[in-house]
Simulated assay, not measured.
Amino acid sequence: MKAFVQDRYGGPEVLALRTVDDPVPGPGEVLVRVRASSLNAADWHLMRGDPYVVRALDRTTFGWRAPKRPIRGRDLAGVVAALGPGVTDLAVGDEVVGEVLAEGAFAELVAAPADVLARKPADLPFEQAAALPLAGTTALTGLREARLAAGDRLLVNGASGGVGTFAVQLAAALGAEVTAVCSARNADQARALGAVHVVDYARSDFAASGQRYDVVLDLVGNRSLADLRRVLTADGALLLSGGGTSQGGSLFGPMRLFAVAGVRARFVRPQRLLAFRAEPSAAMVADLLAMVAAGTLRPVIDRTYPLADLPEAMRYLEEDHAAAKVVITV
């Protein structure tokens, strides 16, 4: 099969399209012929080995000079091509969508655990389906952990990215009053997705606005913990899931903020400081698909690239601050 592989850390130039052996599905896995994938901050973090500290902290994923697994890509939508031993809930020919934590989706074929895959509705294009799993699951997990409810005030820092566009829609559907922090060029999109208020970060500092929010979702990691807590209500929830912005390499990146929040969390109650991580889940993806079918959620796609142009797609994601999702077709 054709797949993009990397043998060392670096920018998009380290991604090389090669012919490699087809993966073989193991027990509980299926072989999926990939029709579409999408890019996430996790992909460039692994591509660059960034922040550097994770190379020492997560030795199952990061090597010293290259990732432990050479093929990037976690989101996928495709067609089941073969079944591994013990798989009974899926059949060859099923159209599926999900997130593969072990990666490998920037390829023609990927072996994926059957229990992270949901059946894709026939009327949902593969490109839109592939935009859902990681970003949608992250947004849904965070808002559920914060116990966001109708009437709550939510601030989303990074509202125009993949997770942000889903978070704005999910919160608006719940009846929350959403404030989106994004660039001026993405303001209309944020309003169209359900934001009541939009803050242009180039013109206004949300931390100095005097406003207070029941929930703050930080997806950027570019503000101090003090700034973020300043805009929380006395019993509000701060959600930290910032992928950060690519600057070509960093020592700690957003992990510094997560660490500080972890230390302070026990001393600032009833405020809740939550550095959360969403796990791949077929049930979560099924929930998101149901919302798409009901018309309360839609994947927002900025650009679509063929697999052969993956390095250019990654460059666009890193350098041009993609609005919403960047999708790869296979």
Rank of each mutant, 00 (worst) to 15 (best):
D227S: 13
V196Y: 00
Y213F: 15
A283K: 04
A275V: 05
N222E: 12
R223D: 09
G221T: 10
R229H: 05
M284L: 12
D302S: 13
F252E: 06
A265R: 15
D235N: 14
L232Y: 12
L217C: 12
G243N: 05
Q189E: 07
S281T: 03
Q271Y: 08
A265T: 13
V300N: 04
R266E: 06
L257N: 10
V215L: 06
D287N: 04
A207G: 15
L225T: 09
G243Q: 09
A207E: 10
V292E: 07
A237R: 13
V216G: 05
Q211N: 13
R230M: 01
G210T: 03
S281H: 06
V198D: 08
A237E: 01
G221I: 08
D287F: 00
G242Q: 02
R277S: 13
A259C: 05
V268N: 10
A208V: 00
Q211P: 00
G249S: 07
V216Q: 05
L219P: 01
R272C: 04
A261I: 00
A282Y: 00
R298F: 02
A283W: 00
Y213I: 07
A265N: 08
F267D: 11
G244E: 10
L238V: 10
A293E: 14
D214H: 15
S246V: 02
G262A: 03
S241C: 12
F252R: 13
S224M: 05
L297T: 09
V231Y: 13
R272K: 14
D218F: 08
L217T: 00
R298Y: 01
L225E: 10
G210P: 08
M284W: 02
S281K: 02
G210S: 01
L225H: 10
D287A: 13
V196S: 11
G194E: 08
L257Q: 03
D287V: 04
H197L: 03
G249F: 03
L289H: 04
F258I: 05
Q247H: 11
A293F: 00
T233F: 09
M291S: 10
A294I: 01
G248Y: 07
G244K: 11
G262T: 06
P254W: 01
N222W: 01
V260H: 09
G243V: 08
P280G: 08
A237S: 15
A282N: 00
D235K: 13
M284Y: 03
L251T: 11
V285E: 05
Q189N: 11
Q247G: 14
T245Q: 10
D200V: 06
V263I: 14
R303G: 00
S209I: 02
P270F: 10
A226F: 02
P270E: 13
L257I: 07
S246T: 00
S224G: 14
A265K: 14
A195C: 07
